[in-house]
């Protein structure tokens, strides 16, 4: 069984004309459609987004996410301290939920994306089927990672009782939202086809 990549051919995504794989960027000779290079471009873009997400992941977790003014107390909560607080207060289900959505999901996405990128760019032959499944799982869980941002934005809008109680977004909200958006963009920009472009075909 041979893949198109192994044969050195591609099809135009628009007019489906089969042609030889170009070196570098090219247009379809029949309809003029831009032919994106499957391997290099997608991987590069994904790398950039993943690196950006990792860079912002630190401030998102270290800085306070939410500033709660509940007269006479006021507290700044990072994501982790908020989870700790929920856990201590007895809402362990909520703590688990927030932990999964805010810590586990973005972290898993970044790790899995990184793994896929490394293997794809090295044209690894390691279980492309498993890697494809990982990619699909990535897309499914990706939708849930914005939970914290939603919580904060909701509370900020709802809890505004002047001096007595108010919730304000902390400096971590923006990096956190960026991490989520960047990971979503990264997983979208990752072309799962690169998983199958193994070194086997290159001769």
């Amino acid at each position: 069984m041979k893949t198109a990549d192994e044969l050195g051919v591609i099809a135009c995504p628009l007019c489906e004309l089969v042609m030889r794989s170009p070196d570098g960027d090219a247009d379809c000779p029949r309809c003029g459609q831009f032919l994106p290079r499957v391997s290099r471009r997608g991987i590069g873009k994904c790398w950039a987004l993943v690196i950006a997400a990792v860079a912002l992941y630190f401030p998102a977790n270290v800085l306070p996410m939410m500033h709660t003014e509940q007269f006479p107390m006021h507290r700044d909560d990072t994501i982790l301290s908020g989870i700790k607080f929920l856990w201590r207060e007895g809402s362990w289900e909520l703590a688990v939920l927030v932990f999964a959505a805010s810590i586990l999901v973005p972290l898993t996405k970044l790790i899995v994306l990184g793994f896929l990128l490394v293997t794809s760019s090295r044209r690894s032959t390691w279980r492309p089927r498993v890697r494809t499944k990982m990619y699909r799982a990535l897309e499914v869980i990706g939708h849930w990672s914005m939970l914290d941002v939603f919580v904060v934005s909701l509370l900020t809008a709802v809890v505004q009782l002047g001096r007595f109680a108010s919730v304000e977004p902390g400096p971590a909200v923006l990096p956190f939202a960026s991490v989520v958006v960047l990971t979503m963009l990264a997983s979208a920009s990752f072309d799962p086809r690169t998983i199958w472009m193994t070194r086997r075909g290159e001769a």
């Binding site: 030889r20 070196d23 090219a26």
Partner: peptide
């Protein structure tokens, strides 16, 4: 035959 296929317009 791959060689018979049309070549794309490379940038």
């Amino acid at each position: 035959n791959v060689d018979d296929l049309p070549a794309p317009n490379v940038h």
